[in-house]
């Protein structure tokens, strides 16, 4: 058999097996969502099983529509906040917000950096997390946790790891419901939610933030960014 015939045959086999073909459409991995069998209580497992399609929709929406935001593995699920004694289950989302290093942002006090991130992302994430009216009305969903993480500063020496800042915002269900129905504004949510902060791995304890309305997420577009076919963003 000639080389060219052998190559042609190899291509046919490769295409048939799916080894060669057009580039696959980008899609988020389900490993961003905590698997059902990873929960430690029946309540958690039941919620995860019931709302799995909604969690996938949440994952895909952020992946496609907020491409500068990254979701790590097992960052979406019905977790129990560590400070809560009983088995209260909060729909939780942890995101890493990619930003250019900014000296002026780095010079702000940590409360102001946290306030800026809260203002920009918490309201928008709450709306995405509660697209399902069924989930919002479910009595076994006790609240919502939004964890925001960003680069505090770039490494200044070779081999030095980057340090992230993190805030965890715990929003009880009644507060979220009031916000989503327009009865309270995002500054009220900042007042009524519990917010914890971390500088790298070091706890900063509870933070008191002053938030404001920020429409960045609904107005910012990545230059020349093209959505995958069939994907739409609000």
């Amino acid at each position: 058999m000639s080389v060219s015939r052998r190559l042609a045959l190899a291509m046919v086999v490769a295409v048939t097996l799916g080894i060669v073909g057009p580039p696959a459409a980008a899609a988020p991995s389900d490993d961003r969502i905590l698997a059902v069998d990873q929960y430690t209580t029946d309540k958690g497992r039941t919620l995860a099983r019931t709302y799995w399609p909604d969690l996938r929709t949440l994952n895909a929406g952020i992946y496609h529509c907020l491409p500068w935001v990254e979701i790590q593995k097992q960052s979406i699920g019905f977790f129990r906040p560590k400070h809560v004694a009983q088995d209260d289950r909060y729909l939780s989302l942890r995101i890493y917000i990619e930003q250019d290093p900014s000296p002026s942002f780095a010079r702000l006090p940590v409360e102001k950096r946290a306030s800026a991130m809260f203002s920009r992302y918490v309201g928008a994430m709450l709306r995405r997390m509660t697209k399902s009216p069924t989930l919002l009305a479910d009595d076994s969903v006790d609240g919502f946790t939004v964890i925001l993480e960003w680069l505090k500063q770039v490494p200044t020496a070779a081999g030095e790891p980057p340090t992230h800042e993190t805030i965890a915002v715990f929003v009880p269900k009644p507060v979220a419901a009031d916000y989503l129905s327009g009865q309270i504004s995002i500054p009220d949510v900042a007042t009524r939610a519990r917010v914890l902060g971390w500088d790298g791995e070091t706890s900063l304890g509870a933070l008191r933030l002053s938030a404001w309305e920020d429409n960045f997420i609904s107005t910012y577009k990545v230059k020349n960014y093209e959505l995958e076919p069939g994907v739409t963003c609000p």
Binding site: Q38, T40, W68, F79, K82, W198, G200, V222, E228
Partner: peptide
């Protein structure tokens, strides 16, 4: 710019494993 382009750019610009709080310090499964 496609979503795959952004993923590739992010991977190439990775700063390395960051110092950050673990999920277990915030949430229970």
């Amino acid at each position: 710019v496609t979503r795959n382009d952004i993923t590739r750019a992010r991977d190439e610009a990775w700063w390395g494993k960051p110092i950050t709080v673990s999920q277990e310090q915030i949430l229970e499964r």
